[in-house]
């Protein structure tokens, strides 16, 4: 005979595993997510809040309890056909996969780390050790190329890199968008591109050479009121139709800023002096391509992949299987199965 304590535990477990609670929790997650995205200024900080995380945690815990509770009944159940068995086990596996994905997602948010590198060709950077599995890894950009479509839009970025680790031969790899370089629990991705320019600024006969990256203003005058910002380099004209591939870049757009506000924009050719106003001129002397590489370390990723695998398997079960017929007649209570007490 079960003790009072066991009965209490059983009752608590059934409450936690109840469908009523599950639907309420998922309903709350749904409402919270809708509000979070539609109320201006709330997203994305909102999804990192304790309330939202707590709701998700409770919903996943309920799914876990529900899954455990369903298992004995599913094991004893006699399916009338293989397709019904597929369906029954598919539904159960779907719940398991959601728990595994949620665990992986939590691990990813808790232990995942990001870093961002901007390298010009020939430049070497040391990767943060905590993102490289504790190893000392240096990364060198050997080459970086941009291909263009015939209409002038970017077709592809390619970074040829070398990874050097003590005691191991140098590893050379090509990184493209959608084709990251994986090493250990980290992935190195082609994230963005830009340019680094060598600029000669002249003010009343005084010359100064500066290095400036795309989109980042650089002060021109000593009081800092006047600044210049260079945009992405482009071909002289849009490439003619059929001229896809690598295209020489010869002009760069620039914006003159006064007290941080744009005061005028135009284009400059490389190597030609551009007079902005009396006593002020500049020359864009050289351009180096900058490859933006994102480093993502995620030790929980295998768990997420496992969850996705289970989910896909479960969905195959659902699609190949056959749901037991339930007679739902509009306006009448269903006849085949009693209303769930969960």
């Amino acid at each position: 005979m079960p003790s009072r304590f066991n009965r209490f535990v059983s009752r608590v477990f059934r409450s936690l595993a109840s469908m009523r609670l599950g639907l309420s929790l998922f309903g709350l997650v749904l409402l919270a997510t809708i509000l979070g995205t539609l109320v201006p200024g709330l997203w994305p900080a909102y999804q990192r809040s304790a309330v939202f995380a707590g709701l998700l945690l409770l919903a996943v815990a309920n799914t876990a309890f529900c899954t455990v509770r369903q298992l004995p009944g599913l094991g004893r159940r006699r399916f009338t056909s293989a397709r019904q068995a597929f369906y029954g086990w598919g539904v159960w596996l779907l719940h398991v996969s959601i728990i595994v994905i949620a665990l992986g997602g939590w691990g990813s948010a808790r232990y995942g780390r990001d870093a961002y590198l901007e390298l010009t060709v020939g430049q070497t950077a040391q990767l943060p050790a905590e993102l490289a599995g504790g190893e000392v890894v240096s990364l060198r950009l050997d080459d970086f190329q941009t291909d263009y479509h015939a209409d002038g839009t970017v077709a592809e970025w390619r970074s040829l890199v070398s990874l050097d680790r003590p005691g191991r031969p140098s590893q050379s790899a090509l990184i493209r968008v959608n084709h990251p370089l994986a090493f250990g629990a980290a992935n190195l991705l082609q994230s963005s591109f830009g340019s680094r320019y060598r600029l000669e600024l002249t003010q009343d006969g005084q010359r100064q050479a500066v290095s400036v990256d795309t989109g980042r203003p650089v002060s021109w005058t000593a009081d800092g009121r006047l600044a210049i910002q260079l945009d992405a380099a482009s071909p002289v004209n849009s490439p003619p139709p059929g001229a896809a591939g690598e295209v020489p870049l010869e002009v760069v757009g620039y914006t003159v800023l006064v007290d941080g506000q744009p005061a005028g924009s135009a284009s400059a050719r490389f190597g030609q002096s551009v007079r902005v106003r009396s006593g002020l001129s500049f020359i864009v002397q050289e351009r180096q391509a900058v490859s933006g590489l994102a480093l993502r370390y995620d030790p929980a990723l295998p768990l997420v992949w496992a969850g996705f695998g289970l989910l896909s398997l479960a969905l195959v079960g659902l699609l190949a299987g056959r749901r037991p017929e339930v007679a739902i007649v509009p306006g009448h209570p269903p006849a085949a199965t009693p209303r769930s007490k969960l």
């Binding site: 997203w43 994305p44 990813s108 959608n178 991705l189 994230s191």
Partner: peptide
């Protein structure tokens, strides 16, 4: 796909959300 393209399988992007 997002894992391969952006390095993260979920970013709470409006479309994903």
């Amino acid at each position: 796909w997002a894992q391969y393209a952006w390095g993260s399988f979920w970013r709470w992007d409006p479309k994903e959300t």
